[in-house]
C-alpha cells in the first residue's frame, strides 16, 4: 500500500452556525499532485488553512506528513511548505535576503542556505536579480520564487493556494513545470486553482461545493462520469448546485 501524505476524516470548521467546511474526508498519496477545486466561498481556503495548522478544526481529524494537525501543529509546520493566495515574500527585502530568512527559519545551516540560494537562482534563471528588492521584480518571477522558497527545507507536502492568480500563460506553464519537478522528487503537491487547464494537470482532483466534497477522482474519470468533454464543464455542472453565492 502506498504511503499517505494527507489523511482527512470528517473534518469540519464552523463559524457560529455557518459550516465553512462540512464533514470532509479524503486521502492524498505521497508524491501525488492533488487539485483542490471549488467556487469562491466553497471552503477551500478554510480547509487548507486547517491542514497547514493555521486554523483549528471544529471537529474531525487531519493528519499531514504523519502528524495530527490538532495535536502537533508545530510538527506539521516543520514538514510542510505553504504558498498563499496573497503574495507573501517580503517586498522590502532582496531575493537573497528572503531566501536567507526562510532558510534560517527552517534551521538550515549557513552553508546549506548558500547552496540552496545558488541552486534556486540557477533553476529560476534569477542570478542577476539576486540583490534586487522583491518589490522590483515582475509578478511571475515573484510567484516562482515564492514557490521555490516554500520548498527550501524540502518539505514532504507543499500547499499552494491559487499560486498562479494573475500570472501570464507562459509563466503559468513554467510554474507547472516547477510543480512537476518537485512532485517528481517525491514532494506531495496540494494545490487550489480556478484554471481548469491546470486542474487537468493534476493526478487527482476534488470538487468542493458549499463546504462539502462533491466529487473526487482523476480528471479523466470525472469527465467520463459526467459525460462531458472538458474540465470546465465538470466544474460548471457541479458548481451549479451550490447554494452559497459567490463569496
Amino acid at each position: 500500500m502506498e504511503k499517505l501524505a494527507i489523511k482527512v476524516k470528517n473534518l469540519t470548521k464552523s463559524f457560529g452556525h455557518f459550516k465553512a467546511v462540512d464533514n470532509i474526508s479524503f486521502e492524498v498519496k505521497e508524491g501525488e499532485i492533488f487539485g483542490f477545486l471549488g467556487a469562491n466561498g466553497a471552503g477551500k481556503s478554510t480547509a487548507m488553512r486547517m491542514l497547514c495548522g493555521l486554523s483549528t478544526p471544529s471537529s474531525g481529524t487531519a493528519e499531514v506528513a504523519g502528524f495530527d494537525v490538532r495535536k502537533k501543529p508545530e510538527k506539521v509546520k516543520q514538514r510542510i511548505g505553504y504558498m498563499s493566495q496573497r503574495f507573501s515574500l517580503y517586498e522590502d527585502l532582496t531575493v537573497r535576503e528572503n531566501i536567507t530568512l526562510y532558510g534560517g527559519i527552517y534551521g538550515l545551516t549557513k552553508a546549506k542556505i548558500e547552496e540552496e540560494t545558488k541552486r534556486m537562482t540557477t533553476q529560476l534563471k534569477m542570478e542577476d536579480l539576486l540583490d534586487h528588492l522583491v518589490m522590483d521584480i515582475p509578478l511571475g518571477w515573484k510567484q516562482k520564487l515564492a514557490f521555490s522558497v516554500a520548498l527550501i527545507h524540502h518539505p514532504s507536502v507543499v500547499f499552494l493556494d491559487e499560486p498562479t492568480g494573475g500570472v501570464d500563460p507562459k509563466t503559468r506553464r513554467q510554474f507547472w513545470e516547477l510543480i512537476y519537478e518537485a512532485a517528481h522528487q517525491g514532494t506531495t503537491i496540494f494545490v487550489t486553482t480556478h484554471y481548469m487547464d491546470e486542474a487537468s494537470y493534476c493526478d487527482r482532483i476534488s470538487m468542493m461545493v458549499d463546504g462539502e466534497i462533491k466529487a473526487l477522482d482523476t480528471p479523466k474519470a470525472l469527465k467520463k462520469r459526467m459525460g462531458v468533454e472538458t474540465m470546465d464543464e465538470v466544474f460548471r455542472m457541479l458548481a451549479r448546485k451550490a447554494k452559497r453565492g459567490d463569496d
Binding site: 493555521l54 508545530e74 509546520k77 510542510i80 505553504y82 496573497r86 515574500l89 526562510y102 527559519i105 527552517y106
Partner: peptide
C-alpha cells in the same frame, strides 16, 4: 500568515 505556517 507565511510566518505562522513556519515552525518558529
Amino acid at each position: 500568515e507565511q510566518m505562522n505556517v513556519t515552525p518558529i
